[in-house]
Nucleic acid binder design. Structure first.
Lengths: 282, 282
DNA sequence: CATGGGCGATACCCTGAAGGTATCGCCGCA
DNA sequence: TGCGGCGATACCTTCAGGGTATCGCCCATG
């Protein structure tokens, strides 16, 4: 199976529409139709049910969509990592570290500092990403290491080391009635009618339904919180980044959050190994 | 990058010889040379150093070999799993379970029995493989689940559950002087001049150097042991498969062996989930 | 020291796979 | 009943990928 065929199939499976998929791929619709039915013939499997008004995935099609995405990610990763390895030879060596905007900046600062002191340390490019985005960067080789948050981020298929486990706090605008409390139950904050939880875009770029405001970045969230439009629940260490108009109250029964450093298995990179070692010494 | 290009590069990187690689790929040498240099141009990286008498991998080439193999495995897995998913629809559903020839047959029997009792259980194809081979089967989608042995098998990138942890025993032919002992130290058996440890073929199909006999299968090993040509060190539970001319002696300080059940992350298969659940209930 | 042979690169040709355009056939809907 | 949306089919065109012949380099060997 060629990656081109996989890309074609994934496009159709995502759009569930040959015309739009073809447009997205920058080709005409007929060759796309042909490529898909040829793929189906070679696999001996019906991947899509076309019933003249709509296209739907079969069971086998769903499997290929899943596995195909993973395979395309792996191919892309091979490409990226090779390019970066070639750069390393010319003395342009660097590691890309992906981290969530909300992650503990204190921990990150200490990590970068500790790593910089290593012999043979190279330039670390820090990429701040939205939630769930680090996983994608790691899988496609656009990042070499990532800071992730268990149990929120998917760790499957990565090597990881735990760095820090902490409780969570709720963030209120100063003056909110609950800021007088010294601790809260999770149940007290999840269903506040005046402060709904914000909604993040899913992997498909759309927002789940709900009352909360839509947000794409951490700074947006902080601003929304200051304005009293939403309630944040974040790891304890995020308190240090708050300014005066925001107040944090610990939530005693919220699940603990573990900050981990993650990297693709079989990483051959010296720099990644050094970074992880530095992280473990913190 | 197309999988064809990756296959071409991997072939050359493994053979380190354009002519042989071309032969292996079933094409002529010139188009292969062209394909590789085109790939190098597109990646902007030198992958191979050709110094007129020999071909060697560059640093970037080594990375692409590594990552490329993983990517090709992922593509192959997508293909296999889609085919099997399509079969499942026609009522031909089955799971492929890969296990090492030496693994506890008792545990396996119990597992298969427990799973068969599940509602919705499907046919389980058991594949016996040589050491290290299960990993490959799982990665390429030719198997859905595997029984592996930590710390001997590579578990990276798989989801796993531990099933059984046990010590190891040395296997001697009946009448060997050490069979009078009730326990042994690891150091007492690793360097016996009369009974060298056997040699397994590596992933490249060649045997490491050493005094021990070469072996490809578990039954070969048992026979070699009966003949007094080699010494076996195996998990405790393997004793049950021995016949009378072999004697097992526990090794007190050998590393413990954990039998685990492993499956590819993000497995969407109902049967795999049921199998794992059945295994955990044992 | 000449030379033959092994190996990768280059030159050049040819075929077929992949892409484009036009159009059909089917179906839901106004 | 006819129009429009959508996937499939028919047919043409192009160029990427594969083949053969040959070069150029270098080591081995007599």
């Amino acid at each position: 199976m060629e990656t081109r065929e996989l890309r074609y199939f994934v496009a159709v499976a995502e759009e569930l529409h040959f015309g739009r998929a073809a447009q997205r791929l920058g080709i005409a619709q007929p060759p796309l139709s042909r490529a898909i039915s040829q793929l189906e013939r070679r696999l001996g499997a019906t991947l899509l049910k076309r019933d003249s008004r709509s296209v739907t995935l079969t069971e086998a099609g769903a499997v290929l969509l899943h596995e195909g995405r993973a395979a395309l990610d792996a191919v892309e990763a091979a490409e990226h990592r090779t390019r970066r390895a070639a750069l390393a030879v010319t003395g342009q060596a660097s590691v890309v570290l992906a981290t969530k905007a909300g992650a503990s900046s204190e921990l990150l600062a200490k990590l970068l500092h500790a790593y910089a002191a290593e012999p043979g340390a190279v330039n670390v490019e820090v990429v701040l990403c939205g939630p769930g985005e680090q996983e994608r960067l790691l899988r496609t080789g656009r990042a070499d290491v990532a800071i992730l948050h268990h149990p929120f981020d998917v760790l499957t298929g990565f090597d990881t080391e735990e760095l820090l486990t902490e409780g969570q706090v709720a963030i209120f605008p100063a003056g909110h009635p609950l800021t007088t409390r010294t601790s809260l139950q999770l149940s007290e904050v999840t269903e506040l009618p005046d402060l709904p939880l914000p909604r993040w875009p899913g992997n498909d770029g759309t927002y789940p339904d709900g009352p909360g405001p839509e947000a794409q970045s951490h700074s947006q969230l902080l601003q929304l919180t200051s304005l009293g439009r939403t309630l944040l629940v974040v790891p304890d260490s995020a308190r240090s980044q708050l300014n005066d108009d925001l107040v944090a109250v610990p939530i005693v029964d919220a699940p603990e959050v573990t900050t981990v450093i993650a990297w693709p298995p079989h990483s051959r990179s010296r720099a990644v190994a050094d970074l992880v070692r530095a992280a473990l010494r913190l």
